[in-house]
């Protein structure tokens, strides 16, 4: 039995310790927002945050993340609701499938860098493939979220 802390909630899961986190999240915790894309860590669809760092859950065994804080797309609204609102506002998604991973990667970037440049965005987001090709809007959405969050911070 393994205990995973996903979006601040504890899940007791009876799986092999070498099962990739992705399948524990999807098949056992039944949080389906995190997606399978390649199984080899090259597409980014399965990205989640572990203690704030983006990782590929399709390659990370559950044994490595026990006791750590796991954040999936379902937990983003408590972290950076503005990010999701901007994503909607700019109509970023097309099919939407890769967008959970895109948003998680964007969240990780914005948590560390409140005013990312295009280069910073390239570096943080180039691990996430979007077959529909929404990159232009992803870039705009990250810039706009940063702007809104910074304006909010100034007011506060």
């Amino acid at each position: 039995m393994i205990t995973l802390t996903i979006n601040s909630k504890k899940h007791q899961i009876d799986v092999d310790s070498n099962m990739p986190l992705l399948w524990a999240i999807r098949d056992f915790a039944e949080l389906t927002g995190t997606k399978y894309g390649c199984g080899t860590g090259v597409c980014g669809s399965c990205t989640v945050l572990i203690d704030g760092d983006p990782i590929r859950s399709c390659l990370t065994p559950v044994s490595e993340v026990e006791g750590k804080s796991i954040l999936t797309i379902e937990g983003v609204e408590n972290e950076n609701k503005v990010l999701q609102e901007v994503w909607e506002e700019l109509n970023v998604p097309q099919c939407g499938y890769c967008q959970s991973g895109q948003i998680i990667s964007a969240l990780a970037l914005l948590n560390k860098n409140t005013n990312p440049t295009d280069k910073d965005i390239d570096a943080a987001m180039s691990g996430n493939i979007c077959r529909c090709g929404t990159y232009k809007r992803i870039r705009s959405a990250i810039h706009k979220t940063a702007e809104l969050n910074n304006a909010k911070t100034e007011i506060e």
């Binding site: 389906t32 109509n91 998604p93 959970s100 948003i103």
Partner: peptide, 26 residues
């Protein structure tokens, strides 16, 4: 703008792989 935009940004929409029915084998 897309009527599904908010959903897409929250991971809620159900794609094929997100379906789970009782007693289902993988």
């Amino acid at each position: 703008k897309s009527i599904d935009g908010a959903g897409f940004a929250s991971g809620k929409p159900k794609y094929g792989m997100d379906i789970k029915i009782p007693e289902m084998k993988y």
